[in-house]
Lab assay of single mutants.
Amino acid sequence: MRSPRTRGRSGRPLSLLLALLCALRAKVCGASGQFELEILSMQNVNGELQNGNCCGGARNPGDRKCTRDECDTYFKVCLKEYQSRVTAGGPCSFGSGSTPVIGGNTFNLKASRGNDRNRIVLPFSFAWPRSYTLLVEAWDSSNDTVQPDSIIEKASHSGMINPSRQWQTLKQNTGVAHFEYQIRVTCDDYYYGFGCNKFCRPRDDFFGHYACDQNGNKTCMEGWMGPECNRAICRQGCSPKHGSCKLPGDCRCQYGWQGLYCDKCIPHPGCVHGICNEPWQCLCETNWGGQLCDKDLNYCGTHQPCLNGGTCSNTGPDKYQCSCPEGYSGPNCEIA
């Protein structure tokens, strides 16, 4: 077999650049994923090309098998939009790539799955459409700058595939050579959905506090709520009108309100015997008056200043008058 000629994957630097851009600016990249293909086995019993010639040398006159050299087999892949009637021409609109030389006439790579040499990765940054057309071609490398490479066999497949970690196996069982391969579509990290176009990256910072479920939905951490999980859940009972919080379990009062639940107004400074319904009010309790509710309107009842059976009459805020019984006098009937 001729010395292998290595063929790198098509578009790999571009895919790395796209992945970097997506990581830095995830909101700009609407989708991100990759179409993967792995060659599993190849069977070319006679070492022939599609045109019937030998990959190298002439045929044995007896059994008609190619004798001089085995094929240097590598694969090309073209991925494009779905076609009900597949045409070989036209651009590979979803991507293209190739393997290096991975074997001779016949080989089996099932035991070495995950080997990069027999895998082609086609990254995409558009919403995966699920339906596709795939062209797979086996080629013989001439290892010659003058002699062109020659095609051994080709296969085409049109179908639908959803993103999954599971592989789907396909076979080419007609023509001079048979080969088996597997395909799958996977979303990149933080991308979800059938189109790999739903973005969700767990975070716990100013912009949100959430994890992501298997469908890419945000699940808020304990103590947080809202579409972006950036609204803290305040202390139970915290007034929704007069209290708020920036951290879970907190209850910060608005100006003019106080209390554990921010449901108590702050009265006017200096208010003595008054209450409030709104901040800075001083609504006097019964029998109290004045701007600060510090004037006693029922001095008689509060202090009972009249002595010796005198009768007390309220005459104004903090004022009274005693009517003394016979034989007593003085402001409080204290003089006998």
Rank of each mutant, 00 (worst) to 15 (best):
L283R: 09
K295I: 07
Q304E: 11
D250G: 14
W224R: 08
R203G: 12
Y190D: 10
N314D: 11
T87A: 12
E222K: 06
G33A: 01
K241E: 12
Q291E: 10
W224L: 09
C71S: 11
Q236E: 14
A177D: 01
L20Q: 02
N44T: 06
G8R: 15
Y132H: 09
D63H: 13
G274V: 00
N108T: 15
P248T: 08
S93I: 09
N108K: 06
Y181S: 00
W139C: 09
C229Y: 01
Y299F: 00
G256C: 01
G97R: 13
A88G: 15
G270R: 05
C54Y: 10
S150T: 14
I120L: 12
D296V: 02
L170P: 08
Q214P: 14
H242L: 08
K27E: 02
T73I: 14
Q304K: 04
T169P: 10
R113C: 06
A211V: 10
G52A: 04
H303R: 12
N197S: 02
N53T: 03
P4R: 15
S84F: 08
P227A: 09
Y320C: 06
G30W: 12
C251S: 10
K27M: 12
R119C: 07
Y132D: 03
D318G: 10
S150N: 07
P91T: 08
G216S: 02
H157L: 14
G208V: 08
C66G: 15
V146F: 07
G95D: 06
Y192S: 09
L247I: 03
H178L: 04
S131F: 02
Q321K: 08
C300G: 02
R130K: 02
N44Y: 15
F194S: 11
P123H: 03
T87R: 00
W280S: 09
N217Y: 14
G114R: 14
C324R: 01
L135H: 02
C271G: 00
D205G: 08
Q281E: 08
S164T: 10
Y82D: 12
N298K: 03
K65Q: 15
E228D: 11
D296G: 02
T286S: 07
S141A: 07
K76I: 15
Y191S: 09
Q43R: 03
Q304P: 03
C251W: 11
Q214L: 11
G237A: 05
Q321P: 03
K246R: 13
T133K: 00
L170M: 01
N46S: 02
S323Y: 04
P91S: 14
D296N: 10
N215I: 08
I161L: 14
T315R: 11
M225L: 11
I335L: 09
R2L: 15
C306W: 01
K154T: 12
I151N: 05
D250Y: 04
D294G: 02
S32L: 09
D294E: 05
K65E: 15
G56V: 15
G30A: 00
G175C: 12
T174A: 07
P129R: 10
N215S: 08
V121L: 12
E137D: 08
R117H: 11
E228Q: 11
C66Y: 11
N332K: 09
W139L: 10
K171T: 11
K319I: 15
A177G: 12
R5W: 13
W167S: 00
H157R: 05
Q168E: 12
H268Y: 10
E278V: 05
T6A: 15
C300W: 02
K246E: 14
T133R: 03
C22W: 04
N118T: 15
R231I: 06
P100S: 08
F75S: 05
G301A: 00
R231S: 06
Q254R: 11
P331T: 07
R12P: 04
F207Y: 07
L122M: 04
D69E: 14
A232G: 13
Q321R: 11
I335T: 04
N44H: 04
C322W: 01
C312G: 01
W280R: 09
D140E: 06
C238Y: 10
Q43H: 02
L49R: 03
C293G: 02
S142I: 05
T302S: 13
